[in-house]
Design a protein around this nucleic acid. Structure first.
Length: 280
DNA sequence: AGTGTCGCCTGAATGC
DNA sequence: TGCATTCAGGCGACAC
């Protein structure tokens, strides 16, 4: 599932392939994904893709005429770029095609349809329903130990749920929440307000490091991005605890017989993985 | 206001 | 073998 690093990878790949191109035509094959497609989607025909930006897990295509096309991949969405001349059949969950004037074609495929497509005036982005409530980017200077301490001290929920709250910090999804807490050595079940200064510093650093490593892993496979492989750029081979119940944690020196290895539990309806020995 | 739960959706994995 | 059930999860809506 695309989290921040995957979305970042997709944005970079997209920028390389289609920045500066004009939109020739758009086709949709149903009226909605998680929300309806914009009624005026065809109004961006003829506009130029000036730049591409990631914000949280949203992909922003800034167009000429002060328009911005917003894409979100949800859980199962992927973008593929092909040359229009390549013979290519529409697959089952292709929902939108963007044809460009240079004969490339962007395909938005999303089996579970948790993704979305929206259109807004560029200057109104910050006030849009999608961005109004978002917290700082994890790499922004505004996301630091002082900020996190302020945010956590009054909160009663578990720290894992807190760092997944997009109002606190954006882009930390379920997988990287578990991974970051492992790297920081913090038990995901701990109450947010129970973390001390040192732990909070470690957590900020861990979130940034985990995300940066994942982006780097994605970037290294970027050249294959245009091929039809939604899995590319993912971090799954480097997971330390996620999806590995009862296994050894990364760099394990634990007494597995005693700890039972990596534990799996559920928080807020989402799977959490952690090492009971390394995370306290 | 902060917190917890639900629903959207489909395919893979598991259970009987 | 084949059908039914469970699980996965971003994010907004909603109830308390």
């Amino acid at each position: 599932m695309p989290e921040l690093p995957e979305v970042e990878t997709v944005c970079r790949g997209l920028a390389r392939a289609v920045q500066g191109q004009k939109i020739a035509r758009i086709e949709t094959f149903r009226h909605d994904l998680r929300i309806p497609f914009p009624k005026d989607l065809n109004s961006i025909t003829g506009l130029k893709i000036k730049s591409i930006e990631r914000r949280a897990k949203y992909i922003l295509l800034h167009l000429s005429g002060q328009r911005t096309l917003i894409l979100h991949l949800g859980m199962s969405g992927s973008l593929t770029i092909r040359n229009k001349k390549e013979p290519c059949q529409k697959s089952k969950h292709d929902h939108m095609l963007i044809f460009l004037q240079d004969d490339q074609k962007i395909t938005f495929n999303d089996p579970r349809r948790f993704g979305l497509v929206a259109l807004t005036d560029t200057k109104n982005i910050d006030q849009s329903r999608f961005f109004r409530h978002l917290g700082p980017e994890p790499f922004d200077r505004a996301f630091n130990a002082f900020y996190l301490a302020e945010k956590l001290k009054s909160r009663k929920i578990a720290v894992k749920l807190a760092i997944m709250d997009q109002q606190l910090v954006v882009g930390v999804g379920n997988i990287y929440a578990s991974e970051s807490l492992f790297m920081a050595g913090i038990d995901p079940l701990r109450k947010s307000s129970s973390l001390n200064e040192i732990e909070i510093k470690k957590l900020v650093a861990a979130i940034q490091k985990v995300l940066k490593r994942a982006i780097a892993a994605g970037g290294s496979s970027l050249r294959n991005y245009v091929q039809a492989d939604g899995e590319l750029g993912y971090f799954q081979h480097q997971w330390a605890v996620y999806g590995k119940p009862a296994e050894k944690c990364k760099g394990c020196t634990c007494n597995i017989k005693k700890t039972g290895g990596i534990q799996k539990t559920v928080q807020g309806g989402r799977a959490t993985f952690y090492c009971p020995e390394k995370q306290r």
